[in-house]
Nucleic acid binder design. Structure first.
Lengths: 166, 166
DNA sequence: GGCGGACGGTTCGTAGGGCGAACCGTGAGG
DNA sequence: CCTCACGGTTCGCCCTACGAACCGTCCGCC
């Protein structure tokens, strides 16, 4: 009743509420392209390069049975493909199809645009400061690359031509 | 290939990836108390005060039909109650039960603890700076109070005793 | 060389989440 | 009064997530 309601917000509520905000953006942005947030996330991860199911599970924090379903549905929509792993008959490499690659790029761009707009009230220097601080948190906590930096990825994800990073 | 891979992260990826992180925390923290993230969120919102279904829908960004289900399940678990609205027979006030209030407090505390731990690598001054910047974003974008400040709420949400804030 | 265990993925059943459309009763304004 | 807006619920559909059970391949070890 004294030091509050003054507009100052604690670090934890600030993080949780901004998370809420970004979640909403992800959902809206996805809806615009007929993607669920999860499918959008999957596409974004695959923009970097193809991954195996287990790798994806680890990155996205999902049980493998959950992954099967997600990839199934996304595959059914023609956005993703299961390629056999050259050096392991059991394994599978999940990769973007041409269509998936295009949609991923659009979704990525739209999401970026929207998230950027959230920070419209901040000066350039403040945005940099924020990026630096959040970047530290992301790094410290080893958050998987669920969203690429604007320029990386395009090189490795370029095409279907038997690229086999790993 | 030149200015990247140097650990610096753009503002948008930083926001998205930290969001991913907080989402994971919410999920884990909830699991610990047998709550889904959505139910946890609902409890947190109701810590402040009871709300009508429509209000909740607006705050959480859910369609009313989605709300019905969420409240149903949470009610079935004995955490929440539908009180009749004194001045509108049609309407309903969703409020925490005693049990829900307790669980909400625990979930809130645990989540706070975990989110705080994410920022462990930051100095106190940096945390303040981060809180300030994120706070601006939250304010600018009028994010609903889906997570209270540490001390507010307890007063209004105190008890079942026919409190009727609006 | 073969055997057994670890590993990569899928299947199945269950439960939750989210939506739009249709519906119902109450409130409120002409 | 009568109508219409409003607060909520119901229904049917699909997506998400999990654990447990399962299957085939790979690999280390004797």
């Amino acid at each position: 009743m004294d030091k509050h309601e003054d507009g100052r917000i604690g670090i934890v509520p600030a993080l949780v509420r901004s998370t809420f905000l970004v979640n909403a953006v992800y959902a809206e942005s996805g809806r615009e392209y007929g993607l669920t947030p999860q499918q959008g996330q999957l596409l974004c991860v695959l923009m970097a390069q193809p991954y195996g199911m287990s790798e994806l599970g680890a990155m996205l924090g999902l049980a493998k049975s959950s992954l099967t379903g997600l990839v199934d549905r996304t595959e059914r929509n023609g956005l993703v493909r299961r390629d056999p792993d050259p050096r392991d008959t059991r394994a599978v490499r999940v990769a973007l199809t041409a269509r998936g690659s295009g949609l991923a790029a659009e979704f990525y761009a739209e999401t970026t645009r929207r998230v950027e707009k959230l920070t419209a009230g901040l000066a350039a220097a403040e945005r940099d400061a924020l990026a630096g601080l959040l970047g530290r948190i992301v790094l410290d906590n080893k958050v998987p690359v669920v969203f690429l930096e604007p320029d990386e990825g395009t090189l490795t994800a370029r095409e279907d031509e038997g690229r086999d990073i790993r």
